[in-house]
Structures are given as C-alpha cells and as structure tokens.
Simulated scan of single mutants.
Amino acid sequence: MTGRIEIGNDRSGSAHMIDEAGQLITSMQAFHLDGAGGMTAIEVPAGMADLPGDGFNWVHILGRSDEIDAWLRGSGIDLISLAALTAEETAPRATAQGQTILVNLRGVNLSPGAEPEDMVSIRMFISERLVISLQRRPLYAVRDVIRDGEGGHGAVSPGELVARIALRLAERAEPVVMALNERVDELEDQVIEENSSVQRGDLADIRRMAIMMRRYMFPQRDALNRFELEEMDWLHGLGRSRLREAAERMTRLAEELDSIRDRAQIVRDEVMDLRGEAMNRQMLVLSVVTAVFLPLGLITGLLGINVGGIPGASVGWAFWGVVGVLIVLAVIQFWVFWKIGLIRRG
C-alpha cells in the first residue's frame, strides 16, 4: 500500500499496520478473559476451533486488509455472520442465531478533525467462547475497555463485555451532548435579551447534530434491550443487568437529544419572531413618514406647476406663508398619528 508500513506480530500476537505519520490504520488484537476480571493478550487464534483455556476470548479488529479478510473467512463463523461483520453500512441491531448473536452499535467519532455526529459503527459476533468485534475507524470507547481489562478490571462474560463497550460508547457521547446543550443555552440567553443577531446557521448545525445522533441512539437502545431479553445459556445475571443499564443510558441520551432538537426549534421560532417585529417597526416608520409627506408633496406639487393663477405669486411673503402652512399641517398629522397609536407614546 502506498505510504504505509506494515509491522509484524508483536510479542502478544497482535498485528498492526501504521502509516508513515505513525497513525494506526489496521490492527488485530486478541485477549483471553478468564471470567474473574483478568484479561491477558494472546496470539490471534486461528478460529473458533483454536480457543485456548477457560473463560472466553475476544478478537478485536480495526480497519480492513487482505489479511484481516482472510482471517475472518477462516475463523469458522457462518456466512451470514461474516456478511454482517463486513457490511459497508450498518445500523444498530441485535440478531440472534441459536446460541450466537450479532450486535451492531454506533459511537461518536472523536478522531481529530472528524465530526462527532459522523458516528462510527462497531460490529460484534458473540458466542459463549468467542467475541469478535470489528470497526473500520477508531473508537476511543473500545480503547477504554481494553485499558480497563489490562488494568485487571476485565469483563466476566461475553454479555458483560458488550455491555461495557455500550456503556463506554454512551460515556464518550455524553460530553458531545452536553456541549450541544450548552450551545442551546447560550442561544436561549441571547433570545431572552432580545438579541435577534443569533445566526440561523448555528441553530441549523445544532439541530443537524442532534438529529443525526438521535437517529442511532433509539435503535441502539432497542438492540441492547433485544440482546438482554434473548434466551442465551451463557448470558447470566450480571451481563443482563449491565446490558439493561447500557440501554437506559442510551435512552437518556436519546431523550436529551430530542430535547435539544426541540429547544433549538423554539429558539429559531423566537429569533424569527424578533426579526419579524423589527421588520414591522421599520415598515411602520416608513409608513408614517410616507403618510406625513404625501399631502405636503401634493400641495407643493400643485404650487409648482407653471401655469397662471397661482395664489400669492406676486406677494413677497407668500413663500414663507406656504412654509408655515406646511409646518402646521405636518404637526397636525403627527398629533393625529400619535392619538391613534401609530406613533408610540413615551
């Protein structure tokens, strides 16, 4: 591959590929979890028939390469699961097949320069002895789970491992949702101060982010609930309770995003009302000015025609007399407009 350097398996058996800038492109890591919180890195097993020890094993794949595709084809998983793991587009879901289940989840994209709402998918094949997770782009939530396991706080069952990943996905999404909330708060404060300079582009950006993130949160909640309710022999009490907790956190995030979207719409309506009122005031001023000068213009127009019989044409003070009449007429008009409320009192 142009501009890429492949690094062979390290002592733990993990395979990595990085580019010339040192950025991770693909990796394949394998871990053995003993069911008591311990997690150790192992060589990537050849497939489901080559799973060492008790407990269960977790193979995590980042990116895509010919080597990864070859390993997946030879791993022993069925063709339906293989197609689901390697699909280009995925939506959050949970699909059971006997004593195995496929779970797709989404997490916010926190990579440098990326848009958080461009949510990254993680696809998982889960059985009693093996969990295979695959993502095309980095997810900090998975790194958090791996770091916890390396610190002696690994999952005790495959179900709990999925729940931990889902909880970390929610934890990483919470600051993004909180930042959206703060942006809406700032815009609401500006509207309360009757500041109509709020940019509609800011409101549109907030609503777009909230809608795009919400699009995955509710299906993600449903997928976790579906997983928690499945009759899997290896899905025990702790795993079910953690899955339920993860689903509840996804529900809270989705409801918060609903609130943000609705608040942004209300702020937009308020801004449009403020701008409409400002426009109405400006049109009222123009209407009053036009109404005042319309009769004055009519009189001066009549006196300015070049025909005989103009009154006062031969009188020296006639000009100032006409000016005085126009001033009196203008004052009377202003008084009438003020009485009928076209001009604000005070």
Rank of each mutant, 00 (worst) to 15 (best):
N306W: 07
W71M: 12
I25T: 13
I211K: 11
E230H: 02
G301H: 06
L303C: 08
N280Q: 04
S121Y: 09
D205I: 06
V323Y: 03
R207G: 10
V288I: 15
G152C: 03
T2R: 13
I211A: 13
L134E: 03
E188V: 03
E186I: 15
R73W: 02
L51C: 02
P116E: 03
G55I: 07
R137T: 11
I305F: 05
P52R: 02
I126M: 05
F56M: 10
T26I: 05
A96Y: 04
S133N: 05
L303T: 15
E88Y: 12
E194C: 05
R64I: 05
D262M: 15
N306V: 00
E117D: 15
A30N: 04
S241W: 03
D269G: 07
A246S: 07
I343N: 15
I299L: 12
A166W: 04
G346Q: 10
W335P: 06
A46I: 04
L296P: 03
G201R: 10
S197I: 02
A155P: 03
W335E: 08
Q199P: 14
A96V: 11
G321Q: 12
I310M: 11
P295N: 13
R261C: 14
G13Q: 05
G297D: 15
I61K: 07
R164E: 02
T26H: 04
L24D: 11
A15E: 15
I260C: 06
R4I: 06
R226Q: 14
L24M: 07
G239M: 05
D118A: 15
R73S: 08
G3Q: 14
E193K: 02
L203G: 03
G107S: 08
G276F: 00
R123P: 01
H153W: 09
I332D: 13
G346V: 07
R147M: 10
V307G: 09
I5V: 09
P116N: 09
P158H: 13
Y140I: 09
S314H: 15
I260F: 10
A170S: 09
A278P: 00
H236E: 14
M212G: 11
G201W: 12
G63K: 10
F125R: 05
I327D: 12
E128V: 06
E270L: 12
I343G: 13
W234C: 08
E231G: 05
G297P: 00
E128A: 12
A330S: 15
Q135N: 10
A210F: 08
P112F: 01
W71R: 02
N104E: 04
V120K: 08
R215W: 09
A247D: 14
N181D: 14
R164M: 14
T300C: 10
E245K: 05
I68S: 02
A179I: 04
L85M: 11
R221W: 06
M39L: 13
H32A: 08
Q333N: 12
G309C: 08
N306T: 00
